[in-house]
Write a protein that binds this DNA or RNA. Structure first.
Lengths: 138, 138
DNA sequence: CTTGACTCCGCACTAAGGTACGGGCCGTAG
DNA sequence: CTACGGCCCGTACCTTAGTGCGGAGTCAAG
């Protein structure tokens, strides 16, 4: 089978048919040739392309970034180092998110630690802290 | 000053006026009494309420979750342990996100490690890996 | 009394990443 | 040849957390 219809490509790549149309509109995948009837005829390697997109997404790249990644492949004179650079940028991105979440985790932990779980709601240290009762109270 | 107009409350709480209307629509803050003219008259403690919402958001609670938190405060028979429970749920939530991001970081790191940054694009191990060249190629 | 700032309301729009729908062709198995 | 599934298209809708806008009414200072 040399060319695929939308449904076939969608099934093989594990995405929704609408998603393919969406990616096409967003410029992530090229417009495929059409039959006279208007039916899209995707080359077999499109499966790869869609999976590439999905994998990149799993690695935390947004569709915008995926588009840039794909553009790199086509841009003449692009080097391996360019791609590497994008990946490294994404690493520091991810590290930042991790650090933010860790700060949140620490804050939540100290909150739950301050609360024995006993006593009525009115004395709950968590709500008090969220309310800012500790520092204000004009 | 016993009661605040929207603009005053917004300024004191550090949010946009529109955000107050939005929170009201979403049931996060109660509908305040109105003047004859229709102007809202917020009690002074509304500032606290808005700040509560903002702090909870900073701790990773979605507005939906904040609403639940606020509902707890009103629900009769709610205990401190209930609040504590919500906070702990959020902690495991956050931990899960951290773990996911760490997995992504590891994957990206092994990808960049595999790429010297030299050589032409066609041989880039990162793109190859994303493309799945390593396992398929039927 | 007028003017300018503030408030009211509903509605539209943003970003991201799709999903769903309805009407109308197409293509092929029976 | 006809029926049914697949495909076409544009468009609307979803979630989250708001922001923006325009027209009309209001408040307070000068």
């Amino acid at each position: 089978m040399e060319h695929l219809k939308t449904g076939e490509l969608a099934k093989r790549a594990g995405v929704n048919v609408e998603t393919l149309r969406f990616y096409e509109r967003e410029g992530l995948i090229p417009e495929p040739p059409r039959r006279v009837s208007g039916y899209r005829e995707y080359p077999a390697e499109s499966v790869r392309l869609i999976r590439f997109i999905k994998r990149a997404q799993e690695l935390g790249f947004s569709l915008r970034e995926v588009r840039e990644l794909l553009a790199l492949r086509v841009e003449p004179g692009t080097t391996c180092a360019d791609v590497r650079h994008k990946a490294q940028e994404k690493v520091s991105d991810v590290r930042e998110k991790i650090a933010d979440l860790q700060a949140i985790e620490r804050a939540l932990n100290s909150l739950t630690a301050s609360c024995s779980g006993e006593g009525p709601l009115t004395d709950c240290p968590i709500l008090e802290c969220l309310n800012g009762t500790t520092n204000e109270e004009k």
